[in-house]
Nucleic acid binder design. Sequence first.
DNA 1: GTGAAAGCGCTAACAA
DNA 2: TTGTTAGCGCTTTCAC
Lengths: 339, 339
Amino acid sequence: MVTLKQLAKELNVSISTVSKALNNSEEIGEETVRRVKELAELYNYTPNKVALSLKQNRTKTIGVIIPDILNHFLAKVLFGIEREATQRGYNIMTCISNESLEKEKKALEVLANGSVDGFILCVAEETQIKNEVNHFKKTMSQGLPIVMFDRVAHDVFCDKVIVDDFDATYSATKRLLSENRKKIAFFSSIDDLSVGKLREHGYKKAILEDANQDILLLKVKKEDDYQEKIEAFFKANKNIDGVLAADSASGIIAVNTALHLGLRVPEDISVIGFASQSVSQHSIPKLTTIRQHAKQIGASAADLLIKRLEKRHDEELEFKTTIVKTSLVNNQSTLNKII
Amino acid sequence: MVTLKQLAKELNVSISTVSKALNNSEEIGEETVRRVKELAELYNYTPNKVALSLKQNRTKTIGVIIPDILNHFLAKVLFGIEREATQRGYNIMTCISNESLEKEKKALEVLANGSVDGFILCVAEETQIKNEVNHFKKTMSQGLPIVMFDRVAHDVFCDKVIVDDFDATYSATKRLLSENRKKIAFFSSIDDLSVGKLREHGYKKAILEDANQDILLLKVKKEDDYQEKIEAFFKANKNIDGVLAADSASGIIAVNTALHLGLRVPEDISVIGFASQSVSQHSIPKLTTIRQHAKQIGASAADLLIKRLEKRHDEELEFKTTIVKTSLVNNQSTLNKII
DNA sequence: GTGAAAGCGCTAACAA
DNA sequence: TTGTTAGCGCTTTCAC
C-alpha cells in the first residue's frame, strides 16, 4: 500500500499538503491539488483504514454476534445487516456464538478492544436460559452501544428489533379456527427461547380464550428425529385437524408426515409454519407460512445502531424498540379463509 | 477503554515500563510487574487492537467474500471459516457479493485498505460467467493473499479448496446404475457455475461411457417454480426411474413430486441430491444425499490462509489445492446397493 | 531496572 | 498557500 509519505516525497511537498489536497481542503492551491490527485490516482492510493481508525477513534465497523448461522432466519437477518451496513459505509465483523453464553461473552470481549464501534446481536439460547445479562451491561458501560434483535434481554436497556411473535401465532391460530378446525396442535423445538415462549402463548390464548379447545403440544428437541416424533404424535393423537409449527423445520415435516399417513392436506388437516419461501416449497401442497421479514429486521437493526453511532455527542437518543410485523403467506396447506 | 498512558500516570512510571511489564519483559523488576499487572487487571486493560494493527502492520483479520449467505452450503462454509479463524486468534469481516462481479470488486477494494490481512472467497456467479479475474490478481499483487473455495478461478494462482464434484456425481450416477435404473435424469439450477458444469460432466460420463444410456437434463432457473418445472418434466418424460439433483432444492422437490404423482420412492424411482442433513429430512423417505463437508472446506480454507499469513518472510510456500472428498449418505430415497 | 524517543499512517491546529 | 508539529496507542531500540 502506498502512503501519504511516499506521495509527498515524490512530489516534493509535505505530508500534510498531500493530505489536505486529497481531502479537498480550500487551503491548497489548484495546481498542487491537481498534481497530488494525479499521482494518487496513478498509484491507486487509498487512506490506510487502520491509521484512520486510530486517529478518529472509530472504526466504522459493526460487530455482529449470531447464535447460529445455519438457521435460515438468522442468516437472512445477517444478510439484511450486511446490506444496510455496506450501503452506509460500515463493515461487519461476524462472530458466531453457537448458542453458548461463554462464546457470546468471549466475542464481546474480543471485539470490544477497539475493533468495532458497536454491536448487533441475537441473544444465545444458553444466555436466555441462564438469564445472564451482565456482559451486555458491561459492554454498554464501555461506551459500545448494542442493538438486540429477535431474542432480546428485557432487563437490558438498549435498542431492540423484535417480531410480533405473540400476535403472529395468535392470528395464525385464529386463522385455523376460522377454518372450523377442532383439534389444533402446536409443534415447537424452541420452547427455551423467548420467542418460542411468545409463540406458544399466542397459540394458547387463541385456543383457550377464543375457542375453548384443549391445548395440544408437541415439544421436539433439536437432536430428535423430527419425522419419527411427529409421526408418533399424529398416531397418538387421532383426528388432529390443524397444526401450527413454531420452528422452521416442523411445519414442512408435519405436512409431509400427514400426507405419508394418508391424510389430505388441507382438506383433513391444515398446517401453518414459520419458514422461508424456499423451504415452503419442500412440501406439496406448499406450506402456508408466517414470514418474519428477516432482511428488514437486519436492516432496521443496522439503522438503529448507525443512527446512534452517528448522533452528535451532546444529543440524547432514547432507546427504541422496533417491532417488525409478520405476515401470513397463504399457500395450499391451508383452506381458503372461511370467516 | 483504559490506555497504557493512564496506567503509567497512575503508577508514576513510564509508558514503556508498563508496556514491557505487561508483556512479561525480563527487563522489568518483579515488584513493578506485580503492581502494573494488578492495576491493569483492576481496570480491565486490553491493548487497543487498532493501535496494535497499525504498529505491527497486520490486523489478524480475514476478509471473507461470500456470494450468497442464504445458500446453506455457503453458510456452512462460513461457519467453518469462522470457527477455525476464531480458534487461531483471527476475526473475520464478512462481505456478501450477491453473485455480482461489481460487488465482489468493491468488497475487495474496500477491505484491501489495511482492514484485512488476506481473503477467503467463493467466486461470484457473474464473475464466473464473464470469466473476469483481474481484480483477484490485482489484490494479490498488493500483497494480500487469497484462498478460493468451491467455485474457483483456474487462471489465478492461489490456494484453493475444492470439492470433487466430478467424482461425486460420477459415482452417484454409477450408484443409480447399480440399482439397474434405465432412465436417469439430471436436474440442475446451477449450470452457469464451474461446480455445476463439473457435476453435469460426472453424470454424463457415467451415463454415456458406463451405461450407454441417453442424457436427460432438466435445467431450472432460480426464479422458476421448481415444483411446476419438475412435475412437467416427469409428465413429459415417462418412466424416469432415477434422478440426480445438482442443487440443494431440486432433490427434495423431486422426491416430493414423484410421491405426489403416485410413484413409489425408491421402488419406482430413486433420487440422489446435494443437500444438508436438515434439508434431507424434508421428504419421506429421506433424501439420499451427497455431503460436501462444508465446515471442513471452510476450516481448510482458513488454515491455508493463516499458514500463508504466518509463514516467515523468507520462506517460500507453494500454492496448494486441497480437495475435500464428498461422501454419500444413504437414506431411503434410494435402494440398498445392488452391485 | 527504567525511561526517552522514534515510528506505524493519518489529520488538524498552528506557524510561517 | 504550504509546512511543522503534535498526537491517536502501541512496541521497541537505545540511553541512562
